[in-house]
């Protein structure tokens, strides 16, 4: 049987695209089987954080990006992602602001709703998050260049990054094609169609 070694087509799924690349390369793709296994990084709590921190960040993330007709941030293990990013990528100053923020958020929740963030109902969480977002925007607008950003800005930024670059984000919230195969600089767009990752 003739093996189809034509270049990958636009819109082709990733698995098929990688197979095509392997064939185009004369089967030289050592490791393509690993790539095809479709592994995702399991959600683990990073060093320096507790399971409670991770659970809290899952809920904060899900308040920022809730489940709609497509899954929300909790479904992509956003708490684990955020703890990993803070542990591995933040500098000492940013790290301190973030860890302090984890404490402050419950204090803010008690002040507004009379209970911890985890104890709040979704509507109460949203109200608090909106207040914190307003607070961080006000701070961001007047902060000096080298000052760290507000902890809620960190949480939101990492939630948006972790969500949209996750498998669910790339394939359900927006669109991602591994091998586009072509570039078209003027295609019709109808409102409601998903953006490209």
């Amino acid at each position: 049987m003739q093996t189809d070694a034509s270049p990958p087509r636009p819109g082709m799924n990733r698995r098929e695209a990688i197979r095509r690349i392997a064939l185009l390369m004369g089967g030289a793709m050592v490791g393509s089987e690993i790539l095809l296994s479709g592994q995702t990084i399991p959600g683990k709590t990073a060093a320096g954080f507790t399971e409670d921190d991770r659970a809290l960040l899952d809920e904060i993330g899900d308040t920022i990006i809730p489940e709609t007709d497509i899954p929300g941030a909790k479904a992509v293990h956003i708490g684990a992602f955020i703890t990993m990013m803070v542990a591995d990528c933040y500098n000492d100053k940013q790290h301190a602001v973030f860890m302090e923020g984890l404490q402050k958020i419950d204090a803010a929740s008690r002040a507004m709703n009379g209970k911890t963030f985890m104890e709040c109902a979704p509507a109460e969480r949203t109200a608090l998050a909106n207040a914190l977002e307003a607070e961080q925007r006000a701070q961001y607008a007047k902060k000096a260049k080298d000052d760290p950003v507000h902890y809620f800005r960190m949480m939101k930024e990492l939630t948006v990054l972790g969500y949209f670059s996750s498998e669910i984000g790339c394939t359900k919230a927006v669109r991602y094609v591994e091998v586009p195969g072509a570039y078209h600089g003027d295609v019709p767009y109808t409102k409601g169609e998903r953006a490209w990752f």
């Binding site: 308040t63 920022i64 990006i65 809730p66 709609t68 497509i70 929300g72 949203t126 998050a129 909106n130 977002e133 307003a134 925007r137 939101k156 948006v160 949209f164 919230a173 927006v174 767009y189 409102k191 409601g192 169609e193 998903r194 953006a195 490209w196």
Partner: peptide, 13 residues
């Protein structure tokens, strides 16, 4: 700022 409306908006270009 946050929530479903922001999420929906960000799914579009």
């Amino acid at each position: 700022s946050i929530g479903a409306a922001m999420k929906d908006a960000l799914t579009e270009p």
